[in-house]
């Protein structure tokens, strides 16, 4: 929270004798006062702007919790293999990203993953779009600090040329993103529900998509 100095009170000079001096002083004071007032006004304006920015940043920190939960970050790894499990261990069986994010040779994602989840713990989860981001656009979540990830997902060069609104719709409506909240037996859900995540995205964007440091 940014503290700003208290309002200054202006007192009237009582004697005329000091008239010109007063005028000069008064002008000086006025000038100072005006400067002070300007300073105060701009600080106020900043404060007004700070409130939504702070709220925006706070909302992003909520979204950040979701993005770095296993259900999201497991498919946004830094390395060449996806992660799996609530402990985000490296995916078993030496699975690799491949040139298109969908695996290599006889180990494509859809070699094992079907179009929908399979019942039972540790069975392969599924979605028609199952895969990782392609190597040219890795969209890494793992290991990113909040500020880093915020700036990254806003950057059209790193987010698949999405505007903020398109980003919003991606989180709100995309089917593969939605899998995170319907992950199949035995997998922990993200810390916020999808509606709550979407609501935080909205606050974040409306507040100027502010990023933490």
């Amino acid at each position: 929270m940014i503290k700003f100095p208290p309002r200054k009170k202006f007192s009237r000079w009582k004697t005329r004798k000091f008239g010109l001096r007063m005028l000069v002083s008064g002008t000086a004071v006025f000038a100072l006062g005006a400067a002070a007032a300007f300073l105060v006004t701009s600080l106020h304006a900043r404060a007004r702007a700070e409130k939504p920015a702070a709220a925006s940043r706070a909302a992003f920190l909520q979204v950040y919790r979701v993005l770095t939960s296993p259900r999201c970050q497991n498919c946004h790894p830094a390395g060449d293999s996806p992660l799996q499990g609530d402990d985000s261990h490296v995916h078993l069986q030496n699975v690799k990203r491949g040139v298109d994010g969908h695996g290599k040779y006889g180990m494509r994602c859809d070699t094992c993953h079907q179009k929908a989840n399979l019942p039972g713990e540790h069975m392969p989860p599924g979605n028609p779009k199952w895969g990782l981001p392609a190597p040219e656009l890795k969209m890494v979540f793992v290991g990113r600090r909040a500020g880093e990830l915020c700036r990254q997902i806003k950057d059209p060069k790193q987010n698949g040329r999405r505007s903020l609104e398109e980003l919003f719709h991606h989180v709100a409506d995309d089917d593969l993103v939605g899998w995170g909240w319907n992950p199949g037996d035995g997998r922990a859900l993200p810390p916020l529900s999808r509606p709550d995540t979407v609501a935080q995205m909205r606050i974040w964007i409306d507040g100027g998509a502010a990023c933490p440091e």
């Binding site: 069986q93 030496n94 699975v95 690799k96 290599k104 040779y105 006889g106 180990m107 070699t111 094992c112």
Partner: peptide, 9 residues
Amino acid sequence: QDIDDAMGG
């Protein structure tokens, strides 16, 4: 390496 990538399953 290709064999490692293809046959790990």
